Simulated scan of single mutants.
Amino acid sequence: MNPVAARHTALVKQLSRKLGFDYCGIARAATLDEDARRLEKWLNKGYHGTMVYMERYFDLRIDPRKLVPGAQSVITLLMNYFPARKQRADSYRISKYAYGRDYHRVIKKKLKQLLKSLQEQIGKIQGRGFVDSAPVLERAWAVRSGLGWVGKNGNLITRQQGSFLFIATLITDLELVYDDPFAKDYCGTCTRCIDACPTQAILPDKIIDASRCISYYTIELKAHIYPQEAEGKWKDWIFGCDICQDVCPWNRFSRVSQEADLEPVPEILDFSTQEWEQLTEEKFVELFGHTPLKRAGWEGLQRNIRLIKKNQTNF
């Protein structure tokens, strides 16, 4: 083992813990040939719906060395976001990942700090950090880094804490010691997520028809009318969906997040259905402008509420 690479690897993992990341795994930068074939097939089937951005930068998605010239290592970091409290019972549902501050900003800041600290202690190295919104196949890299496996619901699952975890990636030209890939699938014969999905978005072989997912309907789809076959099936979700994670047996191991910047916004937990319905655009910006809810915006949430109320009347 290269002693310099080993020392640098220990430093990466030490700094990541100090910054509040729960897990850190490292893989050699290489082309993701098998994942490229799966992605191409998924796109050709139209499972991405109107999310045309998924079609862009295909070559960058499958090869990190095209994102960071000279890249040698892909560092994958996980951060727990499981909340201590749930929303009140008489409320419209929000996905747990959106309870607190916008995780993109929170984690991107930490990635910059990690890279800066490595540059200060090691010297001139290059790197780029990515959180969710860049052309990186983050779950594939998490598996290659030994952190967990991709479940039937398409989420990365860890044996220690389940799946309520944000995934971040730091691609760097720093040579490191690489973790063994996660080789086993611990979903077994369990089909709880498939059985629980109201819109049948979870298909065989770990394929997700994103165009039928409740998260897609409530966030990505900008139309004012949902497909007729989906009407009434997402119940009271107005931003995202946690059904497939909530029923996953591995999430019985979820632990409450200790990250202060991901602490839930009180109003998200405490608002009643009536308060969501009466929320003004000005108040939305004041209360939730710094959270992931801004992706749907006030108008998007109000559209979702109107459609839910319409479906409740019709069914």
Rank of each mutant, 00 (worst) to 15 (best):
66 K>M: 08
270 D>N: 13
273 T>Y: 06
284 F>I: 08
262 L>I: 01
103 Y>A: 03
310 K>I: 03
291 T>M: 04
145 S>G: 12
164 F>K: 02
110 K>P: 05
86 K>N: 13
89 A>F: 12
216 Y>Q: 06
132 D>S: 13
98 A>S: 14
230 A>D: 07
183 A>V: 01
149 W>Q: 04
112 K>E: 10
176 L>T: 06
299 E>W: 07
251 N>E: 02
150 V>H: 01
101 R>P: 03
279 L>E: 00
134 A>K: 14
114 L>N: 12
182 F>K: 01
142 A>Y: 05
44 N>S: 15
283 K>P: 05
208 I>L: 15
30 A>T: 15
182 F>Y: 14
113 Q>W: 10
21 F>N: 06
10 A>V: 09
303 R>L: 11
104 H>M: 11
157 I>L: 14
60 L>D: 09
29 A>R: 02
217 Y>M: 15
195 D>I: 14
313 T>I: 06
182 F>Q: 01
206 K>V: 03
204 P>I: 05
147 L>S: 08
315 F>A: 13
92 Y>K: 10
262 L>H: 04
279 L>F: 00
292 P>K: 06
31 T>V: 15
82 F>T: 04
192 R>C: 15
72 Q>N: 14
22 D>A: 08
96 K>M: 04
210 A>V: 08
306 R>L: 00
245 Q>G: 04
241 C>R: 02
275 E>K: 09
258 Q>I: 01
52 V>P: 13
280 T>D: 11
140 A>E: 14
238 I>P: 14
274 Q>F: 01
302 Q>H: 14
209 D>R: 11
218 T>R: 02
303 R>S: 07
18 K>Q: 13
109 K>N: 15
47 Y>T: 11
221 L>K: 12
91 S>N: 10
58 F>K: 11
138 E>N: 05
96 K>H: 06
302 Q>E: 13
279 L>A: 00
245 Q>V: 02
192 R>W: 12
139 R>T: 00
3 P>E: 01
6 A>E: 11
96 K>Y: 11
144 R>L: 07
248 C>Y: 13
47 Y>A: 08
312 Q>F: 15
228 Q>H: 09
217 Y>V: 09
145 S>R: 02
15 L>N: 03
123 G>T: 06
230 A>F: 13
112 K>V: 12
312 Q>S: 14
49 G>D: 00
302 Q>N: 11
165 L>P: 03
151 G>H: 02
42 W>Q: 08
301 L>T: 07
16 S>H: 01
228 Q>I: 07
181 P>S: 05
196 A>V: 13
187 C>P: 12
110 K>T: 04
234 W>M: 11
228 Q>W: 02
128 R>N: 15
254 S>C: 15
76 T>G: 07
181 P>A: 00
239 F>K: 03
11 L>H: 02
270 D>V: 00
175 E>N: 09
234 W>D: 07
298 W>T: 03
147 L>E: 06
18 K>N: 10
125 I>R: 00
18 K>V: 10
177 V>Q: 13
23 Y>V: 02
180 D>V: 02
83 P>C: 11
159 R>Y: 01
80 N>L: 07
224 H>C: 10
170 L>M: 05
